[in-house]
Design a protein around this nucleic acid. Structure first.
Lengths: 196, 196
DNA sequence: GTCTATACAAAGATAGAC
DNA sequence: GTCTATCTTTGTATAGAC
């Protein structure tokens, strides 16, 4: 029985997070303001301060929600022992390819990492945790693929995971800049070829 | 005979560009201000406006200088027919590894690309041109390595170049976030292994 | 919970003295 | 070429009415 996951936040708070997430992905942290978010939602700046008193807290809430959503999906996938490692990897690449299909979105943490030193330290820590956990997850999938005879790695799983993760983050950012969707597809193609 | 390359800009203008470049690499475009630059140099905001009337123009001047410096080195290297393709690639990776040795610097264009939609359009165009030309250069080196029997590629040179470039940009950004210098070294190691 | 109003600081930019 | 002074707008944040 699947109960609808009760929200710990109200509707307005969720809309604020949605809008802030979109703006952070497209324009970054320093460039966005309460005014921008308020305009998109048709509300006033003060209403946002009611839900998220400071910009730093808002940024943290956005990243925490984003990372938790991602992590839940990764946990689900990795837990399914019947799936091939290849399909797990293909699953992981999915969100990146989806972002690549938008004109201006990249991974939230990839965008924030570009202006790392301008972020509140608590926010930096979140971005770091995101990178660390995703690379650990990838390394686990690669190890699994080796154990199942699906992958042949050029080096230790953790090192290959770093290459793949960096290539996805970097490839997505380059894709948005050049506007060429093939940028990320090519990266994924070569990554897959590398694992055989 | 080597004449000292005459500067088309004065000493102060160069110092402003140096400081702006450093701040852009560490904090990004939106987060830096004339005030920050002035404080580092011990001058006033108005003095910067004398040399670079608007922030957009300053940003463009920084990126143009950065890209030209990089390009001159790439042209020199690629022109030397006696060098191996491997040594050329090792040379290309050099600046990334140097940035990785600093606590908070990444590639200027990699940093700016994270907040792409917040940049003036002329600046975006510069970042795009940087990405396009660097990937073309890398593809040329890869092709050369294949012709010389040094490299064996998993796919077309342009596609492998995209993987390598994205991995370097992404790897450097992840490295700065996690603070682990091995992050980028591992990426380079696996890239090199991939080419054999 | 959302609004108006406001405080306060910082930003980009210009005018004009030196 | 650099400075002081100033303008205008924007940003973050709070107080208090509704």
């Amino acid at each position: 029985m699947i109960a609808p996951s009760h929200r710990s936040r109200g509707e307005t708070a969720e809309q604020i997070l949605d809008t802030a997430e979109m703006l952070l992905q497209t324009r970054g942290y320093s460039a966005i303001s309460y005014q921008h978010i308020a305009e998109v939602l048709g509300i006033r700046k003060a209403s946002i301060h009611y839900h998220f008193p400071s910009k730093g807290e808002l940024g943290i809430a956005v990243v925490d929600r984003y990372a938790a959503r991602f992590q839940a999906a990764l946990d689900d996938i990795a837990a399914d022992q019947t799936r091939s490692a290849l399909s797990m990897l293909a699953f992981y690449v999915g969100p990146y390819l989806e972002f690549a299909e938008t004109p201006d979105r990249v991974c939230l943490c990839g965008a924030l990492a570009g202006e790392l030193m301008a972020l509140p330290v608590e926010l930096r820590a979140r971005v770091e945790a995101f990178f660390v956990s995703h690379q650990a997850w990838l390394a686990g999938i690669l190890e699994r693929g080796v154990a199942r005879g699906e992958f042949r790695l050029l080096d230790q799983p953790s090192k290959v995971a770093r290459l793949i993760f960096g290539a996805l983050q970097g490839g997505l950012i380059v894709k948005r800049t050049t506007g060429d969707i093939a940028q990320l597809h090519d990266v994924v193609t070569v990554v897959m070829a590398m694992l055989r």
